[in-house]
Write a protein that binds this DNA or RNA. Sequence first.
DNA 1: GCCGGGGCTGTTAGCGGTCACATAGCCAGT
DNA 2: ACTGGCTATGTGACCGCTAACAGCCCCGGC
Lengths: 353, 353
Amino acid sequence: MSRQPDPDTRRPLPRNPALRPLTLRDVSEASGVSEMTVSRVLRNRGDVSDATRDKVLVAAKMLGYVPNKIAGALASQRVNLVAVVVPSLGNLVFPEVLSGISETLEDTGLQPVFGVTNYSPEREESVLYEMLSWRPSGVIVAGLEHSDASRAMLRNAGIPIVEIMDVDGDPIDSVVGISHVRAGREMARAIISAGYRRIGFLGTKMPEDYRARKRMQGFEAELAEAGVGIEDREFYSGGSALAKGREMTAAMLARSPNLDFLYYSNDMIGAGGLLWCLEKGIDVPGKLGLAGFNGVDLLDGLPRKLATMDACRREIGQRAAQIIAGQSNSGLVGGERVELTPRLQPGDTIRKV
Amino acid sequence: MSRQPDPDTRRPLPRNPALRPLTLRDVSEASGVSEMTVSRVLRNRGDVSDATRDKVLVAAKMLGYVPNKIAGALASQRVNLVAVVVPSLGNLVFPEVLSGISETLEDTGLQPVFGVTNYSPEREESVLYEMLSWRPSGVIVAGLEHSDASRAMLRNAGIPIVEIMDVDGDPIDSVVGISHVRAGREMARAIISAGYRRIGFLGTKMPEDYRARKRMQGFEAELAEAGVGIEDREFYSGGSALAKGREMTAAMLARSPNLDFLYYSNDMIGAGGLLWCLEKGIDVPGKLGLAGFNGVDLLDGLPRKLATMDACRREIGQRAAQIIAGQSNSGLVGGERVELTPRLQPGDTIRKV
DNA sequence: GCCGGGGCTGTTAGCGGTCACATAGCCAGT
DNA sequence: ACTGGCTATGTGACCGCTAACAGCCCCGGC
């Protein structure tokens, strides 16, 4: 008489991993304890005897079980994700912020998740919506300028929000960054006091790069107070920034040969300009001074060191992450304001006074 | 007689968004329809009358409701996330891959989520574990070299896996990339046929950068077949790649002044080397040829164009994303192999033959 | 008048975990 | 022996949403 297997015990064995995704129950059956105990072991929570713990861990490893955080998050109402939203990864600046964040979050149990907006407010809105729908523990977002809908979402999310890079504006919650207006001003002051007077500005065309704009505004304002104006401007968009820096510099100096200083809105175009000037044999910084912005370490490899201003990118990432992780020792529960001070790096392209 | 409000209707009003996170039920009550109908409206699924739809949308917008994808994913067993795991964001190469991915995924309803491993297999393992625990619809991961545990996890995940950048090895599922061995060979061939014979190699010290190593192996093998060896090598780690390129070039030429070609494992150090050579007035490419690898558009702005080989980064991202999205028209369900061919860009730093 | 079939909406039962609490076993103190 | 307190484990009720199905209404056709 052939034995008929009991239908209940004939459930498909959890051997074939592709057949059915593994659940806690599989581990629980394989190790002979309840699901709850397995859950406790895998999360290192509560008291579990060493013997049981070992049994469970062995079973879990053997099956190749990977916990389902979706279910876990739903049940516990806790998500260890931090949404990080930046405009771009194409230039060196944001990757460095991101690594500051990752690094700081590393041993907090929190996990950064990155989103990119391409400087588009609509994209920002949809990226935020998408990310918030995963109920992260916090949001780090670049800039203070957002659509009304984005601001509303962030405010309503009921989680810590940190706006980064920039402090010139009205934060939703916390903010970590530098004042780009002040950065512009400071550069202007340095230029003026080095004796330059006929100044050109080269920047990006992107209307959504508010920070570059603020630098220009601060720059211009400070110049104006010294009775100096910007004599010529040139804006670009797209393409290799280094190449654009060359082209724009060539174009501007052809048009306005009397300029004695060029202020670039970022280091990359500044570097392009510098290379061009050196090739042409222009006396830098004697006849013509140059400066950029960001302090990217690329500049270290240039024939001459471009004057720039460090944007404290890594530190911004770190401080923002600390606020989210609740490690900032301010005692505040939110609404922190951290203004870092960018350091002017005079390099070799501004006359020493 | 004062009316006593029915306790059931006295639930806290969903006015204060910080008090309690909103749920479908709040929207359902606010709009007077069932939760299911709200769900249908917000997902654009199933038949809903226009009148009802409007009511719901108005209520949702008014409350500022953001759906909870955690619950949604758990219930529907569907997650619109694609895990993307790369070793680094610091050089220009991966951001470009990522944007190829984002761009392609844009209108598929899928959302990329990025993770960074810093070239560490342990970190890769934990990043993968973390990401898989969110049950993504697919994984895109750089490289073919992974820890056994990582491979097992990926294989067991039961979702499409695409390994990218490199095709020289044994893929888990699908693979999209170039052959770095072949790339190294091709560069060697070009160098040999341009008449260079005394060759130096400059690269990164990272033992985990398998692709750079494969390029060197291919390069060396091809040279060997022409009866030529690598006469000198120099490796670096950390710091500004541009600056390192200078230093290493200076050091190598001081040590081995007879070299007539320098092959750099990436464009950035190559660019540093090029700048240094030009400064020193070395005859490039007459007395000394130079080449890098990657085809980063930074090179466009250099005084002279460095020879390089395009790694097809954006296209790799696009093709990988297509496979995950099921858009690749191969008819295969998995296990695709896409080998792209890097194009040699001779630039101005290899003698014309 | 009755039936059939759309179009629209509601109901029920989970998804795979975790929380709060109940329970079992064991030992010490009285 | 009884109690209390501890540790180690199990139980049932959810978390917020969606699949599947059931039900309602209204219409036209016979």
